[in-house]
Design a binder for these strands. Structure first.
Lengths: 234, 234
DNA sequence: CGCGCACTCCCCATAAATGGGGAAGTGAAA
DNA sequence: TTTCACTTCCCCATTTATGGGGAGTGCGCG
């Protein structure tokens, strides 16, 4: 079932193709809803969902990602999670849950966290209305294929984004990389220069040239950009 | 084949159990070598490999991760990669490749990058000596199960580490996150305070409390740690 | 109803980073 | 062979960050 979906994904070339593929998955998987939501390291978002637009607006408008126990749990864990296993006892969590169910999200859900390069983070969710035992059977049967599907969806999403973006990645010289790495590790300029056995003045030249290449406003910005672009291997 | 491996993984409780499970995988998958290597955001490493200890020492001693095209590529991409598809034309890459082949690593390889919470990064590799067409067939057939296996190995590794480590991940307050985000975007303290509509003094309090929570030496360090731990959504 | 935590504001003095100059040797590429 | 990127070194004045104080509000949780 998911094998054919993954094969079909290979032909996907644009975001709207991907939208269609993901939406068709909800029918094939026989679930009420699917959601794929990706946030790149630059904050660019891409989302596909079968949820009602009203709920999506409500969610985004209220910044519910900050209190949504599913999102919070997925940010901290590696393995997918069944919604029922989360702690819904908090006050805001209770309120959020009732609003979600009222908006037709469903009482059952299964969410797969996915992480890509440079801090990209995505969430793939299937949800619906089922009794606990039926849902447990469903997730037990399909957790592995769902993990695989999540992987391939995310791969496609990243591929499409990269294609349109033509990301120009700055290239740093070895010493520039060393310098930024030391700073990212918490060394002051004096310490960093010492660690690299060069004068502080020399270190400054590296930091400034790295800052120039990265089009950064200051050292902190340069380090942040370098990390986000995967230039530092810390 | 891998189904049973994943099922067997469920019974794994310690690092040495996991070692055994991973090592047994090389026999079951009929490959010469397997490597699983995980680096947490704190720099803690865990590795299992069938490579010769001599090669491992040589690799670590020379800090080959910095020039290893496989590692460099996996840090930048999401999808697994066949070694043959990489660019081995560089001078250092050529030398590295010859040393690796001389050390019995094999001329073919397939590496799966895996990313976990808080910037954890791991690499799962199978390698061996095969002709190109045979290896291509092998990877085409097993890429999906290998992705799944990587996922479950990493899940177990994280589970074991968490159990022993009781990893306390710093949690930043919303304002602390805002403050660090502004700094990571290149704002000076004055600009950041302005963007957040608070006084610079207040901003400083957030930066300092964030620095404290992250056990960071200075602002740049705090921003670097926050990014590496996936705490900032830039 | 406290307790803790998050949020907001302020002062002072010192330490550190930044901006803008200049210079010279090396090695690889064109 | 010339050019260009990388590496290394230095001075000065100014801006910015840091360290160490204190103090008040509001919210949720037991």
């Amino acid at each position: 079932m998911l094998e054919s979906f993954i094969d079909r994904l290979q032909g996907v070339a644009t975001h709207s193709d991907l939208d269609d593929a993901i939406l068709s998955l909800s029918r094939e998987m026989n679930v009420e809803h699917v959601v794929y939501h990706s946030v790149s390291s630059k904050g660019e978002q891409y989302a596909v969902t079968t949820y009602k637009p009203v709920w999506v607006d409500q969610y985004l408008g209220n910044d519910y990602a900050r209190i949504d126990p599913v999102v919070q749990a997925c940010l901290r864990r590696f393995h997918p999670i069944d919604w029922k296993r989360l702690n819904w006892s908090g006050k805001s969590a209770q309120q959020f849950m009732h609003e979600a169910i009222d908006s037709g999200v469903g009482n059952q859900g299964f969410s797969v966290p996915i992480r890509g390069p440079s801090g990209q983070f995505a969430l793939f969710t299937v949800s619906g209305n089922e009794k606990d035992d039926l849902w447990a059977k469903y997730t037990a049967e399909f957790s592995r294929p769902l993990i695989l599907a999540s992987h391939y969806i995310n791969q496609k999403a990243l591929e499409i984004e990269l294609g349109s973006d033509q990301a120009e990645i700055a290239r740093l010289s070895p010493r520039e990389t060393d310098a930024l790495t030391m700073l990212a590790l918490g060394h002051s300029r004096a310490q960093a220069a010492n660690s690299l056995s060069i004068s502080e003045h020399t270190l400054r030249v590296y930091i400034e040239s790295a800052r120039f290449k990265l089009a950064a406003m200051n050292t902190t910005h340069a380090v942040a950009r370098a990390i986000n672009q995967g230039l530092l291997s810390i």
